[in-house]
Design a protein around this nucleic acid. Structure first.
Lengths: 201, 201
DNA sequence: CCTACCGATCGGTAGG
DNA sequence: CCTACCGATCGGTAGG
């Protein structure tokens, strides 16, 4: 009601905007997330929404950041305590599949969707999406190399090749769930991961 | 210049619209393909463009159809003469990878992009995208089962599992090429396919 | 196939 | 955080 809110209230509003934004963008994309729609759904004015970010691109970057926090909490945090190398790699893949199985984002993997939406464009959002994938891939690669070094994967294992294949299993799962609603695919993804990781030891 | 063209001219115009549309939609998506933009790029009026289709959704469906013809010509036709079963399955996977390697569509796989753009919505476009994937998957499955029946894959091979994994390899390739511009991934995809298909004779 | 138009919505700004 | 506005663009229609 008052034109100025306290810092805490403003942060609360900002969080509410981002929370709603992540839901919308996950299902419909970061571009169909519009200021006017957010304002209506949150019972605010457009300028009230935009004031927290300044411009739509800044909102999109903040939404990506927020989605990254969710992913980190759901997929990375539960695994960080697990022994590096093969045990952590397995747990990471399981957490990754579980994140899709549980539908953490209503529209499936937020980042795969954003990657397809922005890979044909240039700009800060595209760069941010790419950077997130680079970081994630580097983590998978690190654990894979540790597993190879520890002898938990066959000697000639190409870590890049393996990470490429694990990523494909998860993408195929995301696609099967989102386009076809095919829950069987969860088991196919788990079996694929086991076949790639589980043979030795 | 005349308000009415011959049937042949009209078909030529329609083809030109679809050709341009496939290029735009492959890079930026079927929703960012707008009537006004097409009109400008083709030196036509908006109503001149729209007149060929009636509504944007009909245009999107026609673009999907046209992209399907391209895919069919590039991936399915070269393979149709090859012996069914394992030989054709291998050729199909190679044609599928080659289609991405050569960049047949400037924005990567047209259908994977459309699937991500529309999987969170309802309507005729979403249904058409899903139907195309169903058809493609059925073809892969058919050849895989023939290969199993012929003893060209291990006896216990689960055809659904294998098709799921092959799809993942191609999706991982598409992602690596489009988001990261990573040409190495082409070889990873080929190696992945060989590992899945090539071990037994 | 065109011109001329429609209402709706877009991102964003001015000013408070 | 609001109201009130801006120019641009959207899909689509009327009428020829």
């Amino acid at each position: 009601m008052s034109p100025r809110r306290s810092v805490a209230e403003a942060l609360g509003t900002r969080f509410a905007i981002l929370d709603r934004s992540v839901g919308i963008a996950s299902v419909e994309g970061l571009e169909r997330l519009t200021i006017g729609r957010l304002a209506t759904e949150l019972g605010m004015s457009k300028s009230g929404v935009l004031g927290h970010f300044g411009a739509k691109e800044a909102l999109q970057l903040a939404v990506l950041e927020r989605a990254g926090e969710v992913f980190r909490a759901e997929v990375w945090e539960p695994v960080v305590r697990i022994e590096p190398g093969m045990p952590r790699l397995r747990a990471l893949c399981e957490a990754w599949i579980s994140y899709l199985e549980r539908g953490v984002f209503p529209g499936g993997c937020f980042f795969v969707a954003a990657a397809h939406e922005f890979d044909g464009r240039a700009g800060a959002v595209r760069d941010a999406v790419e950077a997130r994938f680079d970081t994630w891939r580097a983590r998978l690669l690190k654990e894979t190399r540790r597993a190879v070094a520890a002898g938990d994967l066959p000697g000639g294992t190409d870590a890049d090749q393996l990470v490429f294949e694990l990523t494909g299993l998860v993408m195929s799962l995301n696609h099967a769930l989102q386009l076809h609603g095919d829950r069987q695919a969860v088991e196919w993804a788990r079996r694929g991961v086991r076949a790639r990781l589980g043979i030795i030891s």
